[in-house]
């Protein structure tokens, strides 16, 4: 056997060995199997809550698509009669703001002057009051069911007061919060519940069991439509600019 033939045979043998090893690895790979892992479905209440929220979100989306057309119809030219009325707006048409006393637990409706950048009624609950001029307020959501775990169902009947958005809490001045009218009081229990949800959100403290079904379902997917809502409902910049405009 010549040297070249021997070398060729060795190379063929090596190639065959490599092919065998590859096939073995492929076989091993195809046999790789994960053990059966039990998947626990999300609780029914979370599914129901999300479906209800998505219902409201869809209506909101359809409204948004029609808003500019509807708003255009509101913008009619001012007639002579209206101009006359402008100069006759009675001074006592609007009740004075309830500037004092500012107390923890109060539900207040902020005046449009307090938040000039926001064109909808903003109800807030006063959660904490500092000795300095600041207080912590939680706005109410416009929706009737909580969107995320940091939103709490209040159990109230009024349309604007059904859900507290604890993720949207704002530390702001007593002047801004005082530019408002007192609507009602949260009550001791609801105030404690709201504080517990807020603490879960900020200090990662566990949520009491009795509250688990009164908050919204968790976020899980980055493309969840609730993100869009969270961005649109965020009042952070509105409060910041209100603070900046203060004398």
């Amino acid at each position: 056997m010549s040297a070249s033939t021997a070398a060729g045979a060795a190379a063929r043998a090596a190639a065959a060995a490599a092919a065998a090893a590859g096939a073995a690895a492929a076989a091993a790979a195809s046999e790789k199997k994960l053990g059966k892992i039990k998947v626990v479905p999300p609780p029914i209440w979370q599914q129901k809550c999300l479906v209800a929220w998505l219902d409201e979100w869809k209506i909101e989306q359809s409204f948004q698509a029609q808003d500019s057309r509807v708003k255009k119809s509101l913008n009619q030219p001012t007639s002579q009669e209206n101009r006359k009325a402008h100069s006759h707006i009675p001074a006592d048409l609007v009740r004075p703001y309830d500037r004092q006393p500012l107390a923890v637990g109060q539900i207040r409706l902020l005046s449009p002057r307090a938040l000039p950048d926001v064109d909808r009624p903003v109800y807030v609950a006063v959660l904490r009051k500092a000795k300095s001029n600041y207080c912590l307020v939680a706005p109410f959501s416009l929706f009737t069911v909580p969107a995320v775990p940091s939103e709490l169902m209040t159990g109230r009947e009024e349309p604007f007061l059904r859900v507290l958005s604890l993720w949207n809490c704002q530390t702001t001045t007593a002047e801004i919060v005082g530019t408002s009218w007192i609507f009602d009081d949260l009550g001791r229990q609801l105030l404690a519940d709201a504080w517990a949800v807020y603490q879960r959100f900020t200090a990662k403290l566990p949520l009491p069991k009795r509250l688990t079904q009164r908050v919204g379902p968790p976020l899980s997917h980055p493309l969840d439509p609730r993100y869009e809502y969270l961005e649109a409902a965020d009042l952070d910049s509105a409060f910041q600019s209100a603070k900046a405009a203060e004398p």
């Binding site: 509101l74 913008n75 009619q76 001012t78 209206n82 101009r83 402008h86 707006i89 048409l93 609007v94 009740r95 409706l109 005046s111 449009p112 002057r113 000039p116 009624p121 604007f160 408002s180 009218w181 007192i182 609507f183």
Partner: peptide, 26 residues
């Protein structure tokens, strides 16, 4: 009391404050 009604009328006074009389009804 109905603070939401006050809110509506404060809304027009905000426009007045901004010097936009003709926008009050709007």
């Amino acid at each position: 009391r109905k603070p939401s009604k006050d809110w509506l009328f404060d809304y027009i006074q905000r426009e007045e404050m901004r010097g936009r009389d003709d926008w009050m009804l709007w």
